[in-house]
Amino acid sequence: NNDALSPAIRRLLAEHNLDASAIKGTGVGGRLTREDVEKHLAKA
Rank of each mutant, 00 (worst) to 15 (best):
N1K: 13
N1M: 09
N2S: 13
N2P: 12
N2H: 10
N2D: 14
N2V: 13
D3Q: 11
D3C: 05
D3S: 08
A4C: 08
A4Q: 14
A4V: 13
A4F: 15
A4K: 13
L5Q: 07
L5H: 07
L5P: 06
L5V: 11
L5I: 13
L5N: 06
S6P: 13
S6Q: 07
S6D: 15
S6H: 10
S6L: 07
S6C: 05
P7S: 09
P7E: 15
P7R: 11
P7Y: 01
P7I: 10
P7A: 12
A8I: 14
A8E: 15
A8V: 13
A8N: 10
A8L: 06
I9T: 08
I9E: 08
I9F: 06
I9S: 03
R10N: 07
R10V: 15
R10T: 13
R10W: 01
R10S: 12
R10G: 11
R11Y: 04
R11T: 08
R11L: 07
R11G: 14
R11V: 06
R11P: 01
R11S: 14
L12M: 13
L12W: 03
L12T: 09
L13Q: 00
L13C: 04
L13N: 00
L13Y: 00
A14K: 10
A14G: 13
A14Y: 09
A14R: 08
E15P: 01
E15F: 05
E15I: 07
E15Y: 07
E15K: 08
H16E: 05
H16N: 09
H16T: 04
H16P: 00
N17Q: 10
N17E: 09
N17D: 11
N17V: 05
L18G: 02
L18W: 02
L18T: 06
D19Y: 02
D19A: 08
D19C: 06
D19N: 10
A20H: 07
A20N: 04
S21Y: 03
A22H: 11
I23Q: 01
I23S: 01
I23R: 00
I23M: 06
K24Q: 12
K24I: 14
K24L: 11
K24G: 06
K24N: 10
G25L: 02
G25M: 03
G25A: 09
T26S: 12
T26P: 02
T26Y: 00
T26V: 03
T26N: 05
T26R: 03
G27L: 03
G27M: 02
G27C: 01
G27I: 03
V28A: 12
V28W: 04
V28Y: 04
G29I: 03
G29A: 09
G29F: 03
G29H: 09
G29N: 14
G30P: 02
G30N: 06
G30M: 00
G30R: 04
R31M: 14
R31W: 06
R31K: 14
R31A: 14
R31P: 03
R31G: 09
L32V: 14
L32D: 00
L32T: 05
L32K: 03
L32I: 15
L32Y: 02
T33V: 06
T33M: 07
T33K: 05
T33C: 03
T33L: 09
T33A: 03
R34F: 15
R34N: 12
R34I: 15
R34A: 13
R34P: 11
R34D: 13
E35M: 11
E35Q: 12
E35H: 09
E35S: 12
E35R: 09
D36R: 00
D36M: 02
D36V: 02
D36L: 01
D36G: 01
D36T: 01
D36H: 01
V37Q: 00
V37T: 02
V37F: 04
V37E: 00
V37R: 00
E38P: 00
E38N: 09
E38D: 09
E38C: 07
K39C: 05
K39A: 11
K39I: 11
K39E: 12
K39V: 10
K39R: 14
K39D: 10
K39F: 07
K39W: 06
K39Q: 12
K39T: 11
L41N: 02
L41S: 03
A42T: 11
A42P: 05
A42E: 14
A42C: 06
K43I: 12
K43M: 12
K43L: 11
K43A: 13
K43V: 11
K43D: 12
A44D: 11
A44M: 15
A44K: 13
A44C: 07
A44P: 10
A44L: 15
A44Y: 11
A44I: 15
